[in-house]
């Protein structure tokens, strides 16, 4: 076997073995429940978040207005809004400031990490990671 072929075999095989090892280290082959079930630094929360979004997307009426937020971490509003736009394709996502007095409140609110302290909304669904709230008035 010529040197280039030998080098190709050895290095390609080595990289493939390392790839297999890293795949196994992350849990190995399986069909995940969500696209991020084993990604990020906190895969358990990532999966729970996406599954809650999936539930909300299925159950809220098409065209309903909705916003999402982390009540204890409002500095992440922009990041949460980006994800919400992607995960709720059938609803109309509005900015979190729509919850402020004087604004038109959305039909639904998704909260993560803490409950929503807003008397206009009633609890509709809850998981470990967060909850879906429906406007009552």
């Amino acid at each position: 076997m010529r040197i280039p072929s030998l080098a190709g075999w050895i290095f390609a095989a080595a990289f493939t073995v390392i790839a297999a090892r890293e795949h196994l280290a992350r849990g190995g082959p399986r069909l995940a429940r969500s696209i991020a079930s084993n990604s990020s630094n906190n895969p358990r929360d990532a999966e729970a978040t996406l599954l809650l979004y999936a539930y909300a997307s299925r159950t809220m009426p098409k065209g309903a207005t909705v916003t999402a937020l982390k009540p204890r971490s409002r500095g992440e509003d922009m990041m949460v809004a980006r994800i919400t736009h992607g995960q709720l394709p059938y609803q109309r996502v509005v900015p979190q400031h729509a919850l402020q007095p004087g604004q038109t409140p959305p039909d639904y609110v998704l909260t993560f990490g803490a409950p929503l302290a807003d008397p206009r909304y009633a609890h509709a669904y809850e998981t470990r990671i967060g909850a879906l709230w429906k406007r009552m008035q």
Partner: peptide, 22 residues
């Protein structure tokens, strides 16, 4: 084999980038 490992990792939801979701 390398490509199959990559497909398996993707199906395990292990390679999804935050930028993709964001």
């Amino acid at each position: 084999i390398a490509l199959a490992i990559l497909v398996s990792s993707v199906l395990a939801g292990a390679l999804t980038s935050g930028d993709y979701v964001i």
